[in-house]
Computed example of a mutant assay.
Amino acid sequence: MAQSNTPRRPAMLDAARAETIVGDEDPAASAAVAHTAAWALMGVGDESFTDADVARLRDTVRSVGVDVIAHAWSRSPEFTLPGALWRLYLLHEWYHRDPGLVESRYAQGLRAPIIQGLEAPVQVRPLRAVMQEVDALLRGDLTDDDLDGVLAQASRAMRVLAAGESGPLWIEDPTDPLAHRVTMRTSALLATADELDLAAREAAFGTLD
């Protein structure tokens, strides 16, 4: 899909530094790294982060995986692009770690009499199809024009997963590699679904930061 011409937030970071994606204790610098990496993955650069820089970052992610930049997003607020991508990344990791378990919970959720946040009759896509789009976004195969659709579908999938028989918790073990303030909150799946909904609406209007 063609890249959007909607003006975007400046990357605030030079290409050489962003390419290393090294964490920084300075919150402003960390936020700059997170935003630069997130927008570059969507194919968006600016005066200081050129098309060639964007292409190199996306090629790197396709070669070695999104983990190389994902940690830069972990402290980003949910109403930002890096915060939304972090939530998609956690879903991506959970699914690929144990697809059978997550698919089973999704099937259980679809049989639930009520799925919070979704009107009956519930119409959702197969989880595997949703995850294929999430994976494509996190590989840099899609653009910011695709964001709202992927975020909205991931939100709906979260709501179905929350309705599964094992309850609304996401990650319960504090030693789990996916243990994070996003995944271990009370009713974490539903809270994350709400956050992805918000991000999807912002993306649709071109105001996701």
Rank of each mutant, 00 (worst) to 15 (best):
residue 65 G to E: 13
residue 67 D to G: 11
residue 67 D to M: 02
residue 69 I to V: 09
residue 70 A to S: 09
residue 71 H to E: 06
residue 72 A to F: 09
residue 73 W to D: 00
residue 74 S to A: 09
residue 74 S to L: 05
residue 75 R to M: 06
residue 76 S to G: 03
residue 76 S to I: 04
residue 77 P to A: 14
residue 78 E to Y: 08
residue 79 F to V: 07
residue 80 T to W: 07
residue 80 T to E: 07
residue 81 L to Q: 07
residue 82 P to D: 02
residue 83 G to K: 08
residue 84 A to C: 10
residue 84 A to W: 10
residue 84 A to F: 07
residue 84 A to K: 10
residue 88 L to S: 01
residue 89 Y to E: 03
residue 89 Y to N: 05
residue 90 L to E: 01
residue 90 L to P: 02
residue 93 E to R: 15
residue 94 W to P: 00
residue 95 Y to C: 02
residue 95 Y to N: 03
residue 95 Y to F: 15
residue 96 H to M: 06
residue 97 R to T: 15
residue 98 D to I: 05
residue 98 D to E: 11
residue 100 G to F: 12
residue 103 E to Y: 00
residue 104 S to W: 03
residue 105 R to A: 03
residue 112 A to S: 09
residue 114 I to V: 12
residue 116 Q to W: 08
residue 119 E to Q: 11
residue 119 E to H: 11
residue 121 P to F: 05
residue 122 V to H: 13
residue 122 V to C: 10
residue 123 Q to C: 03
residue 123 Q to N: 11
residue 126 P to N: 04
residue 126 P to W: 08
residue 128 R to V: 15
residue 129 A to Q: 15
residue 130 V to Y: 05
residue 132 Q to I: 00
residue 136 A to E: 13
residue 137 L to K: 03
residue 142 L to G: 14
residue 145 D to A: 10
residue 145 D to G: 12
residue 147 L to I: 08
residue 149 G to M: 13
residue 150 V to N: 05
residue 150 V to H: 02
residue 151 L to Y: 07
